[in-house]
Amino acid sequence: MRITNRHLKKFAVVVTLVYGAEFGALYYVLQKEYTESGCKRRALQKLEACTAAVESLGGPPLKVYSLNLIDKYNRLHQDTAQVKIPVAGSKTNGYLYTSAVKDPYKNRWSLRHAVLKLKEGQVFTLLSPYPAAKAQSQAPEHVKGIDTGHW
């Protein structure tokens, strides 16, 4: 049986379409899992409770965009989560950096820290796991500034 270039091209197109559809479906499922996680919801509630941060963004209302699943900062495991949520208002945009742990008995997420960093460089600490007086001297690197991917 002889296989021509024409048949190989058709086969390559079909395989590309099938894998592209599978990748799209997987991306959608993962995006939905992140969106529905209690971690993201609690972080956004914390942001909305900080009027200074919301006003700096130019809200309400705030726009919350899909997570970049390729970004190395975003990690969602069974009992820990680290999420970088893109948010925007009418004035500016930024990222809400959060980390959380899940209580296996209550099946609920508890935020460990939440920090909003605006495009202009302004930073709002919405939740810090350390008291304010000790935060600068004893906090790990991800609390002192914005975590750049080291957890």
Rank of each mutant, 00 (worst) to 15 (best):
Y65T: 05
S110W: 04
M1L: 08
E48F: 10
E141I: 13
K117Y: 00
T35Q: 04
P61G: 10
A52Y: 06
T16I: 15
T4D: 13
L26G: 13
K40E: 12
A81H: 09
R41H: 10
K119A: 12
Q82G: 13
S90W: 09
Y65S: 11
E141D: 15
L26E: 07
Q45V: 07
T35D: 14
E22Q: 15
Y73G: 08
T125V: 14
Y34E: 02
R42H: 09
G38N: 00
A53T: 01
D79F: 11
P140F: 00
Y65A: 11
H113N: 15
D147T: 07
S128A: 11
K84E: 13
R42M: 02
L126W: 14
L126E: 03
P60S: 04
L111S: 04
P131Q: 07
W109G: 01
Q78V: 05
Y34F: 10
A133T: 13
A100E: 03
A114E: 08
L30W: 06
L44E: 01
A81C: 02
E120W: 01
W151C: 08
Q82A: 14
K32H: 07
N74R: 02
C50M: 08
G38R: 08
Q45E: 15
N107C: 09
I3S: 04
D147Q: 02
D147A: 03
Y27G: 05
Q31I: 04
R108M: 01
I3L: 06
K119C: 00
R112C: 03
P104F: 06
V29D: 12
N5H: 13
K102T: 10
T148P: 12
K63H: 13
E33W: 10
V54S: 00
P129K: 10
S99Q: 05
S66I: 11
V15Q: 01
E120D: 15
T125K: 13
A43M: 10
C50Q: 11
V15G: 12
L76M: 10
K106E: 11
K9R: 14
G149L: 12
A133P: 06
